[in-house]
Design a protein around this nucleic acid. Structure first.
Lengths: 337, 337
DNA sequence: AATCGAAATGTAAGCGCTTGCATATCACCA
DNA sequence: TGGTGATATGCAAGCGCTTACATTTCGATT
């Protein structure tokens, strides 16, 4: 492999017999260069396989056309989907997206924010609103526009997301309306995760409103097995809960599996609900009753908002993406007796 | 928000009363600066909230410590998982990962390669081996090390992946051993996707070996509904196939759903197999018989190999990650008669 | 043919950083 | 006290690019 050193603007200029300025213009403002010259230049670009150096360009033009997104993990389909549409919109606007993951760790998030700034991100997408003030200050001091997504947020900052609390509240009311009085919950880990904690809060608020007293909530990591295990634990209670509400669909499907293993019929013996409406939820049997959360729309809305923020156009402080309850088979009346 | 202009090395140097060189050394080779000075500098860095500019740094040092990965889509959990562990290993080695998606389009992949080069990637992770020669040449000319992952590849280039063809072949033999003679397949879209086409080839080779003649193969996009639809189409044949082998688990689970809707028992009336062993496969009922593909291990192995390649250390040209057949409930003997 | 203005191109400064080399500092020894 | 080598710091060039400004070119007009 006799590798060729990466050609520079200068190489192209020399090859085409013009100045670097002209080459630069060919690339960035072709209409300012006469056709014959442009063709000669482009030919040289092609021949040398020239690719402009991003660093040099960013340095000279003081623009990066780069947007960053810091998500907890790429493994969660929920984020993957939203980020995908986020990036599609950005890419149409000529921006490239840099994705980093924080592993649900605020410290790590802070680091990644540094990386993004360092790479000159024009704007940033973060998930949710629960984070140390320091992380946000860091951004504010630089005046870099940023956005919390997947949830609505506190009194300041911009958000595009769902009202997780209200959605959980509504779903719980629906469960109660079906006649359930003994409700338990498997929630996501709520530490520094406002999506998880809001969902728990919503369920609690509704059960309290109905005078059901304090319900039992087990927090579990994001995984089928974790849902199964938590479900098993909840089912040891005497008398057993008649409905188990889950903080997300993965936990719910795990719970369903465990119910089957325990010989419990769903919804005959126990009702189960989820949250997110991921693909599997329509596929399992019976179908999972859950909350539909339109991730694609959210990703798009977030991209549009961030683009406006970067352009210093006026925007609403929050955009709420509506959710909807999807009734399938896992929610039924409590068993008689 | 009275935003402060981003501080530069110069600002820090002035604030600390030293030269830019010293500040630079504090950041990159602290041991070469005396403690008292270093403390003063670090204080200034902290006070100003200085973050080094990546572009400037890359330009001056001719190093980026950046690795790129171009995957078909982030939405596919299969890639998400592998990439996640890929990046964990890289990050321990002090490299940052840039992820881009090609949307299964070679043209788009080519573009993204350009973006990666332009950002100074030290190495690149690509998926599979099926791509226009032009895409590869582009990389070769620059001497940028790259790797095909998720599959093994042709006579040249480096690969870390699975032998998709052999795995499909083995699974098919197992199906045939159970007594199936009428086998059909739902494959992924094979165009420019060697994982999909190798799996189809493997199944075909095994059925041919067993003298079962040409089997029917429907190619379907990656989605539950697509699997369901294809399954429906296959089931119109007379006589019906007794086993439907699927190119991935998503298609297989979609097929299972459709079978249920059609009133067919699995595996009583029809056996179904998948490929990948994603999370759901253990959760559906009956459990899906499939091929386990250890994505995390692959991601790690790929990262290690790429790091060596970048360091110009010797490496094996291919690393095969072993797969394993996972027998669960969806494969049984064909129905009697 | 001379003049003029617009269009095309060139010149060169500098973006923020690293680094080879020159210089300053200092502890130590003769 | 002067000299020495090691250590710490500064100076300044230059990485690849964009862009304000200067210069050249050229067609149109008089």
């Amino acid at each position: 492999m006799n590798e060729i050193a990466r050609p520079t603007l200068d190489d192209v200029a020399r090859a085409a017999g013009v100045s670097t300025a002209t080459v630069s213009r060919c690339l960035n403002a072709p209409e300012r260069v006469i056709t014959t010259t442009r063709e000669r230049v482009m030919q040289a670009v092609e021949a040398l396989g020239y690719t402009p150096d991003f660093g040099g360009r960013a340095l000279a033009s003081r623009r990066t056309n780069t947007v960053g997104a810091i998500i907890p993990t790429m493994e969660n389909a929920i984020f993957a989907r939203g980020v995908q549409s986020f990036q599609e919109v950005l890419s149409k606007a000529g921006k490239t997206l840099l994705v980093a993951s924080s592993g649900y760790d605020p410290e790590h998030e802070r680091e990644q924010i540094g990386v993004m700034i360092s790479r000159g991100a024009d704007g940033l997408l973060l998930i949710g609103s629960a984070r140390p003030q320091a992380n946000v200050d860091y951004l504010r001091r630089r005046g870099i526009p940023y956005l919390g997504a997947w949830n609505l947020g506190g009194p300041e900052g911009h958000f595009v997301g769902f009202n997780n609390r209200a959605a959980a509240f509504d779903l719980t009311r629906r469960v109660i309306a079906r006649g359930h009085r003994r409700i338990a919950m498997i929630g996501g880990i709520s530490y520094m995760n406002d999506r998880a904690s809001d969902r728990i809060d919503g369920v609690r608020a509704a059960t309290r409103e109905a005078g059901l007293g304090e319900i039992r909530v087990i927090e579990a990591p994001y995984g089928f097995d974790d849902g199964a295990e938590a479900f098993g634990a909840l089912m040891t209670a005497e008398p057993r809960p008649t409905a188990v509400m889950c903080g997300n669909d993965v936990l719910a499907v795990g719970a369903m599996r465990k119910a089957r293993e325990m010989g419990l019929r769903v919804p005959g013996d126990v009702s189960i609900t989820g949250f997110d409406d991921i693909d599997i939820s329509a596929v399992v049997d019976p179908g999972l009753t859950t909350v539909r959360v339109p991730h694609r729309r959210m990703g798009e809305a977030a991209a549009e908002m961030l683009l406006k923020l970067i352009d210093k156009q006026p925007v609403d402080r929050q955009i709420e993406i509506p959710t909807a309850i999807v009734e399938r088979g896992t929610l039924g009346p409590p068993p008689a007796g």
